[in-house]
Amino acid sequence: MLIDSGSPGAPATIGISLTINGEVRELQVAPWTTLLDLLREDLDLTGTKKGCDHGQCGACTVLVNGTRINSCLALAVMKDGAEIVTVEGLAKHAGQDGAMHPLQAAFVERDAFQCGYCTPGQLCSAAGMIAEGHATSREEIREAMSGNICRCGAYTNIVDAIEDVMHAGAAR
């Protein structure tokens, strides 16, 4: 057994190690802490948003080992050893320290938001989707991005921005 938090009824916090936006963090977490709550409440990385807390909106999307997932449905303790990238680290992760990530620049250029609440999730999701490499046409992008709800309805411009970046071949 790699880890055993103890007998039933006597749960303890568990030590885990996460690399978050390039920085190694040794953390003590209660097993019921979601990755989203760890990021927002404990680490003050509030760029990642809580929309629904149930996997239904995509606002909490982050990259875990390069793969996009909903951080609201992930228990932090289960991600022990993983590399996490949030919207705060997206540009740095793409080697763009100091500048915006190409997707961020394209979102600004294309006016791909109104209130901005869904935007961090949209950005991380788009970065993950481009890395997956399965979507090329506009229809495929729309389908692959359907896990990100935008209550303001900025969808058309979001797809425009993603297409710009995909065609420029610059995203990572």
Binding site: M1, L2, I3, D4, S5, G6, S7, P8, P31, W32
Partner: peptide
């Protein structure tokens, strides 16, 4: 969410044992 304890086995045998270890 309720409070629970957490185990992370590395073999199927340990996992089966662990699932039987708590109601």
């Amino acid at each position: 969410m309720n409070r629970f304890d957490y185990v992370r086995p590395t073999t199927v045998e340990e996992a089966v044992k662990a699932i039987g270890s708590a109601a």
